[in-house]
Design a protein around this nucleic acid. Sequence first.
RNA 1: AGGGGUGUCGCCAAGUGGUAAGGCACAAGAUUUUGAUUCUUGCAUUCGUAGGUUCAAAUCCUGCCACCCCUGCCA
Length: 567
Amino acid sequence: MKLKNGIDLDTIVPENELEEEIIADFKAGRTKEVVTRCPPEPSGYFYIGHAKAWTINFETAQKFGGKTYLRMDDTNPLKEEGEFAESYLQDLAWLGFTPEKMIYASEAYFDDIYKIAEQMIMDGKAYVCELSAEEVSATRGSLTEPGKESPYRNRTPEENLRLFRAMRDGKFEDGKATLRAKIDMAHPNMNMRDPVMYRVLRAEHYKLGNKWCIYPAYDFAHPMEDALEGVTYSLCDKGFQDHRPIYEWFIENGWKKPFAPKQREFSRVVIENVLTGKRYLKQLVKGGYVSGWDDPRFVTLVALRRRGYTPKAIKDFVKSVGWGSVIEVSVPYSALEHYVREDLNKIATRAMVVLDPLKVVITNFNGKSEEIEIENNPNDESAGKHKALFGREIFIEKEDFSENPPPKYNRLVEGGIVRLKGAYIIKCNKVVKDKNGNIDHLECEYLPNTKSGDDTSGIKCKGTIHFVSADNCFKVTIREFKNLIKEEYKFPAKSLADGVKIEDMLEPNSLTERTALAENFLKDAKVEDKFQFMRKGYYCVDKDSTDQNLVFNSTISLKDGFKVPQK
RNA sequence: AGGGGUGUCGCCAAGUGGUAAGGCACAAGAUUUUGAUUCUUGCAUUCGUAGGUUCAAAUCCUGCCACCCCUGCCA
């Protein structure tokens, strides 16, 4: 069987239970095309968790040649979803997902949903209830006891229809009446105890103004919207597992047509040591702990983007977590970091930047600096090379020279040699100190026949360090980050609930800024350009950069295999 | 008179009666002009637990235990 994307169904290898079910549905003729949908949540802050939902929805549709809609589930006028559509679309686009179309449920489906509600009333499946919210709650029963039936439960269909239309026509004040599904007040699943289908709500809807004063509730609206637009698989997180019976009940009793969308659930992901939640983020922004909602220390998608994370890294990460079997899985931050390193290693251009400079004078080098070449990516020859200089005065990292080297120290020591990446081997002859006894600079000599790529000396050199030449570097600003939340708070939301103060969970000095010396090659870097500063880490150009001053965010350090042996 | 979900290595996770994949993390070694990358190797005699069925059980049956979710006119 050929799919719309030209792929043969039989060649598709299912990667989870849903995909197995989809294949079975195709074969049984229950599914003609996979249609999924993304319903934005009205928070304005999108996290890895959202990225997981998007990835699942878009990629399973894509895999089967289907499509994905973006649907604003705007059934609550008090929530003003409209303003979030744009940031949603932006994050979606950044990750590389393009919805088939964007739908406002209010505009597209409210009329139909209303008609279905009337039909359900005539079928004796719904009734107008005049209990107050408190009374409904009080009669719902508890987890172990059945609820009580509403005194309004047995009105005739005709009376219910008259009353429902009265609701629609504004004859009831807010909260004075609801339309409820007539299911079972003794049902063990609380969601089935006559859930509210419509409530009276007078508020300006951002799309429809005051056209309606009654609004359908999620449990009723969602399956109807899915059915109306032909969604075949309505994928949501496992928090909705308990809602599946009600979803199916509405499909059976409201929709009633042979085509039936299916709700299926995947697990949520959270990352350890990470704080999410609008309330808390706002508090941190307000308190001046961070610069804004896209501060690179946050883990909103915009923040991750600014920090230098790539869409591929994020998608690979969420896919690595899998479909999941529990409501929420939490994974250590290092799992996410693995995928950024993996992607950046392939795509980031290498450059030499000295973060903490120590001056070195090459005493036997005179005259004009010599051109050298640096590979842009040693793992990818097609990335090319760029030019740098080697001259009489250069800078190396302070930590690449030691007066009391630990065992197995491969870098420069007095009287020892190291290779300068892309240039020559140098030998340190003298440590020059200032009057306070601090190292001022090093005097070294270079070994002329050891030029990189053209080394005829036969000298073996254990260490290679990076450097910049004084006449080929400029100052840049480097921002380095520590996790905002102290390491001992693996589950910050839980700690908060336990009464820990947010201030006490914050890592002090989670942002440090320093000036570094970068090779001139970096002068043309644009915002979001990603580099590997050799032997240090991955960095990307921040939006705070100006023509005079480039600002780099540290995305993630390189792994450091050097360990001082324990004695 | 509760219902639903889940228990497989420190973390994620395959596994659907035939003798415990894989990834992260970690450790050791090789290669390396990035102590990166890459590569090799090691890492669950055991699948929450106690029994049972079977030639054979993580997988089937029974009991028990633990954790998560559910009582919005939010989504």
